[in-house]
Design a protein around this nucleic acid. Structure first.
Lengths: 152, 152
DNA sequence: TTTGAAAAATTAGCTAT
DNA sequence: ATAGCTAATTTTTCAAA
C-alpha cells in the first residue's frame, strides 16, 4: 500500500491535532472537507490510520519517570522469547530488537525512580538477560506520532 | 496537579478515540456534553492534556525503516534549541534529552535505508550537533502505549 | 449544571471530470 | 476513481437561567 503526498499531509495535519476539523485540514492540504473525510475514512479502512488518541502529560497521571533500557541477551535468544518475556510488564511502552551492541531497546514508564529501579531489576533478572544499560529521559522534546504494533 | 476520577475516565475515553464527540464521552462518564467540554478545556489549560494525535501504522505509510539516533551536542546547547531544530523533521516521531553519554535520543521513521541515511546526515549537519550514533530497529516487539499515555 | 438557540462540523447523496 | 457541491443531521459553542 502506497500513500501519496496528499495522504501524508493529511496524516501530518492529524498528527499535530487529531481533533482538527476536516475543513481545517482541507484548508491546509488544499481539499474540500468531504474530500478530506473520504481520504481519512479510506486510510482507516486500509489500516494506515489505526485510531486517534490523546496526548497526556505523564506526570498528571502519576508516571513521572521515563527511560530506555538496553538489553544484552545470552546467546541463542530468539526475538520471540524476548517478546514473550517482556509482554508481562505493564510499564513497558515499546520494545524493539536493534542493531549495535545491545540486542533490544525497551522504553519504560514508571511512577518514580524507585519504581523504575524495580522494573529494571526485574528485567535484569530475566533468565535470557545477561546485562542491561539504562538511560533516563530528562525532558521529552517531541512526541509526535503514536506507532502501533504491526500485525503479528 | 491531581486528576479526579471523572477526569481520568474522560482521559481514558479520549485515549481510546480522541475524535469521539463530547456527547459520546458524556454518555460514557455520566455528564452532559457541555460539562465534558468544560473539563477537557480545563485539562488542556492545566497541561494535563497536551494535545490529540493520530495512531499510524508506520509500515502502511511506507515507513519501513525505524531507528534511534543518539545526538551528542556542542556545549551550551539548550534543550529548546534542540527541540526547535528537530521540529522541522517530519521523520522524527519522538525526541528526548537523556542521561548518559548522549545528550538526546531521537526516534526516526524513514521510508527505507537510503531515506534514513539522508535524515541522519541532515541531523548530523545541524549546527548544534557534534556527532551522532545510530541504532536501527530490527523488529518491533511491542508497541503498546502512546509515548505520552502510559498505563494508568 | 442544565437548557436552548446560533454557529459550526459531519456525513450522505449527487454531479462532474 | 476522486474531486466539488449541497443539504440534512449532528455536534459544538455560548448564551442565558
Amino acid at each position: 500500500m502506497r500513500l501519496n503526498d496528499l495522504d501524508e499531509r493529511i496524516v501530518h495535519a492529524l498528527a499535530e491535532d487529531a481533533r482538527r476539523s476536516y475543513a481545517d485540514i482541507g484548508a491546509i492540504v488544499g481539499l474540500s472537507a468531504p474530500a478530506v473525510k473520504r481520504r481519512v475514512d479510506r486510510l482507516r479502512a486500509e489500516g494506515a490510520i489505526t485510531g486517534f488518541t490523546v496526548r497526556v502529560d505523564p506526570a498528571a497521571l502519576g508516571w513521572e519517570t521515563e527511560g530506555f533500557i538496553e538489553i544484552y541477551c545470552s546467546r541463542n535468544t530468539s526475538p520471540d522469547a524476548i517478546k514473550q518475556g517482556l509482554a508481562r510488564y505493564p510499564e513497558i511502552a515499546s520494545a524493539s530488537t536493534v542493531t549495535g551492541d545491545a540486542d533490544a531497546v525497551v522504553q519504560v514508564f514508571a511512577a518514580d525512580m524507585r519504581h523504575f529501579e524495580q522494573v529494571l531489576e526485574r528485567i535484569a533478572g530475566e533468565p535470557y538477560v545477561e546485562r542491561t544499560k539504562s538511560v533516563l529521559v530528562l525532558s521529552p522534546l517531541l512526541r509526535r506520532y503514536s506507532a502501533e504494533a504491526p500485525p503479528a
